[in-house]
């Protein structure tokens, strides 16, 4: 891993210099504050930097999209967040957004337009796929050769928005063996975090959802469980720990895998 310092540009700094960014990287709350998700954020930035894309973040001007409030049923808090974020985004004239969190991606893409915030929104898997297709991002194969990777579909990327192939395309560039769980794509099983579950104790039952899913993922004997969502990442990491398999089965975001392969 290189430790070359990267100065991450903010929209405010660019605006002050009379410049704009081609794409806004929407970091999200998990990506900003959660120690595990911050690593994914850094991997995404390294890739954006590496391919020379003119990107920027909102920095301290970013705020929660309001997704967990909306899914919990609090439309007031959601719209408070949404309308304030839209003011900021529109002020900077943002046209295109990449999000590394499917929940942010879904909310920005689907729920903001009606409130006055219309942007081209992509998930980082889609951006990576596009960069690869355009030849701007090449993946140095080799380091993952012979490894088995299984991919867990995040609900808000898969079923909610029909994005199943982009993440698989990206992972397939790693030269590893991609194995599918029985419940995948449209039939993918949730990690247990969606709909504001991330922020509460599970209701009474006989098993945790993340344990059920981690068990299924480990049934494919993977070296790596690939994810595309910070919440799935937490849930499946905990699920793997439940079976005390964290030494042999690693949970990584696909951005981290690409960054690792390219030794960024």
């Amino acid at each position: 891993m290189s430790t070359t310092p990267i100065k991450v540009p903010t929209m405010a700094a660019l605006a002050a210099a009379g410049e704009t960014a081609d794409i806004l990287f929407w970091v999200g709350c998990a990506g900003s504050f959660d120690d595990r998700a911050k690593k994914v954020t850094k991997a995404v930035v390294k890739i954006l930097h590496h391919v020379g894309l003119k990107y920027a973040i909102l920095g301290t001007e970013e705020s929660c999209t309001g997704d967990p409030a909306k899914r919990a049923g609090n439309e007031f808090y959601f719209q408070m967040q949404a309308l304030q974020n839209i003011q900021v985004l529109n002020m900077y004239g943002v046209k295109k957004i990449v999000a590394a969190c499917p929940h942010c991606f879904n909310t920005l893409k689907n729920e903001y337009p009606e409130l006055g915030g219309t942007y081209e929104v992509v998930h980082h898997s889609q951006l990576l796929q596009q960069l690869m297709d355009e030849g701007k991002l090449k993946v140095a194969g080799g380091s993952f050769k012979g490894k088995k990777i299984t991919y867990h579909d995040p609900c808000y990327l898969g079923r909610a928005n029909g994005v199943y192939e982009a993440p698989r395309d990206v992972i397939s560039k790693l030269d590893a063996e991609l194995t599918e769980m029985k419940r995948s794509k449209a039939k993918g099983l949730c990690c247990g975090a969606g709909g504001a579950q991330m922020f509460k104790e599970a209701e009474k039952g006989n098993k945790e959802v993340n344990v059920e899913r981690a068990e299924e993922a480990m049934g494919t004997n993977p070296d790596i469980i690939a994810v595309g969502c910070p919440f799935c990442n937490t849930m499946l990491t905990d699920g793997v720990k439940h079976f005390e398999k964290e030494a042999t089965v690693k949970v990584y975001d696909m951005a981290e895998l690409i960054a690792q392969a390219n030794e960024l």
Binding site: C29, K38, A72
Partner: peptide, 26 residues
């Protein structure tokens, strides 16, 4: 979680001013 969103702009209790600390780390 809802109070945190209202007060801190995030579902957890972090200061909004610390949102880009990861960028400084880079």
């Amino acid at each position: 979680m809802l109070n945190n969103i209202q007060n801190n702009g995030a579902p957890w209790q972090f200061s909004p001013m610390d949102r880009a600390n990861w960028a400084q780390e880079m």
